[in-house]
């Protein structure tokens, strides 16, 4: 029985860590959808690219901290390039088209990574190897590091949206993009910022998780599904909803895996989704 309580405690913490990390990805997805009406099927690839870039750079400069700062910037820039080079022509069209375009881009990115890096997974040493003891069990301090970093980024996003000029523009565009334009807010600029921030956040999530999951070319789509569930459950486009749903799903996954196989834990999330859809089809919180 002791064992169970300890496991529950540890998994609850894990759930929190996983949830916050998921929140990084899901917030980006929700933000891009809320402001641009784009379902970004390539979002997982930004997560993956963050990890691969970090591995690559670390072959030359073995500093994890450096990568945590530099790699997201590169991925954001890449995201913006992709947006304006490839997605511009589909932006106004029906959702299915942007969806398929981003899916195609994601597919191409995965293959490119496969071509350049090969099929074997790469490992990255966690920057913090110390373990601490919680309730007689060992727990990796690095996971707390992930938690804190994710939390900082989320808080940073919140501050950015609420307090900064660009945040105001983004919120205005999300609520009424025509009127925002008529006020003088440049839509191309806002789209670039939103897409850049979203992809950057996804890449940070990927970098943080990489030491735990290893780096492989399908790591993006593996996590994208969970992110989609979160965005639907949270209410399409709602950031607060995405955060709540992330923590919820993180906990369900983590605590659930004590009792059932991890794959079944996903199905649990699926059932959760179904229940919520029955009760509240618009998700926990409505758009924005």
């Amino acid at each position: 029985m002791e064992q169970l309580w300890t496991q529950l405690a540890l998994q609850s913490i894990n759930g929190f860590v996983l949830g916050m990390n998921l929140a990084l990805i899901a917030s980006g997805l929700a933000l891009i959808f809320g402001v641009m009406d784009v379902v970004n099927f390539a979002h997982g690839e930004f997560y993956m690219l963050g990890a691969y870039l970090t591995w690559l750079i670390m072959q030359f400069i073995p500093s994890f901290a450096l990568n945590l700062v530099v790699a997201p910037i590169i991925v954001s820039a890449l995201g913006i390039v992709i947006l304006y080079a490839l997605l511009k022509s589909v932006l106004g069209k029906k959702a299915i088209y942007t969806l398929l375009a981003t899916y195609g881009i994601g597919m191409a990115l995965r293959e490119l990574v496969l071509i350049f890096f090969g099929g074997t997974s790469k490992s990255i040493q966690p920057p913090i190897e110390t373990k601490i003891t919680i309730l007689t069990m060992e727990y990796s301090l690095y996971r707390f590091f992930i938690l804190i970093c994710s939390l900082l980024v989320i808080v940073g996003l919140w501050l950015f949206l609420k307090k900064s000029k660009y945040g105001l523009w983004i919120r205005a565009t999300a609520q009424d993009h025509e009127m925002a334009a008529a006020i003088g807010i440049s839509r191309p600029l806002i789209y670039a910022i939103v897409f850049g921030v979203g992809s950057g956040m996804a890449s940070i999530a990927g970098i943080l998780m990489a030491p735990l999951t290893t780096v492989y070319h399908t790591m993006g789509i593996d996590i994208l599904l969970l992110a989609f569930i979160i965005v639907v459950v949270g209410g399409m486009g709602s950031l607060k909803g995405a955060l709540i749903a992330s923590l919820l799903i993180g906990e369900v996954q983590a605590v659930g895996s004590i009792f059932i196989k991890p794959t079944y834990a996903f199905i649990l999330c699926q059932i959760l989704l179904m229940v919520i859809l029955l009760v509240r089809p618009q998700g926990i919180l409505e758009k924005r």
């Binding site: 959808f33 379902v39 959702a95 299915i96 969806l99 599904l225 989609f228 569930i229 965005v231 639907v232 399409m236 794959t263 079944y264 996903f266 199905i267 699926q270 989704l273 179904m274 859809l277 029955l278 089809p281 618009q282 998700g283």
Partner: peptide, 23 residues
Amino acid sequence: FSTRVGGIAYIMVTLIFCFSVFL
């Protein structure tokens, strides 16, 4: 379940269902 929601949510729901069946 999927026809209860529209648009993008429909896509996500069918997608998630499919993955569950796969699992």
